[in-house]
């Protein structure tokens, strides 16, 4: 029989309720709900989909549609800090390829893979809107701009 009860903490449910209160429909809070849950659990698991669907009164497939549509939701486990290296045109023109290569080498992973210690997963990202600081990458929520390959260690050291 299916597991009953929610995996969401009371604190998350309260945050979701606060967000839902801003809109005429509860559904409008779905991205926020998924974001809060992902911050807690690291990714959007079946349990997260079920819990978010229940708290907002949606069907699971509706929640799953949203979770799979947006890049920032991970429907499989990822590292503690997703590293998204912008590879789009402005960064490409300023050496994003070299940054990606250096990063993968330093972390010992290929694009899309997670480091053995579970800290980082490396992604090639579409434009992150910081082209004035190209090449750049986002580690978690933080932007790091004007990157140089030999400074990556310093940046990564800030994420334990």
């Amino acid at each position: 029989m299916e597991q009953t009860g929610t995996i969401l903490t009371e604190a998350i449910i309260q945050k979701i309720e606060a967000e839902a209160g801003k809109y005429p429909t509860r559904r409008a809070a779905v991205k926020s709900a998924l974001r809060y849950a992902q911050a807690e659990f690291g990714w959007i698991s079946e349990g997260v989909v079920k819990a978010v669907a229940e708290v907002l009164g949606l069907e699971r497939i509706e929640v799953f549609e949203v979770a799979t549509f947006y890049d920032m939701f991970y429907t499989r486990p990822v590292g503690k800090f997703p590293v998204r290296v912008c590879t789009n045109v402005s960064c490409l023109l300023r050496g994003a390829d070299g940054i990606m290569e250096a990063l993968c080498q330093r972390l010992g992973v290929e694009e899309g893979e997670t480091t053995a210690d579970g800290r980082f997963t490396v992604f090639a990202a579409e434009c992150l809107g910081a082209c004035g600081g190209a090449p750049m990458m986002a580690v978690g929520d933080d932007y790091h701009e004007d990157l140089k390959a030999d400074e990556l260690d310093n940046v990564l050291a800030g994420y334990q």
């Binding site: 801003k22 559904r27 409008a28 779905v30 991205k31 549609e65 549509f69 947006y70 890049d71």
Partner: peptide, 27 residues
């Protein structure tokens, strides 16, 4: 006035996709 954060989809910059996304749907 409220803010809502997107979740990573270029298409949501299109105004009607943005509205769909604002309502909690796919953009």
């Amino acid at each position: 006035l409220h803010s809502q954060r997107g979740a990573g989809a270029y298409i949501c910059g299109e105004e009607t996709a943005l509205l769909e996304s604002l309502e909690g749907k796919k953009g």
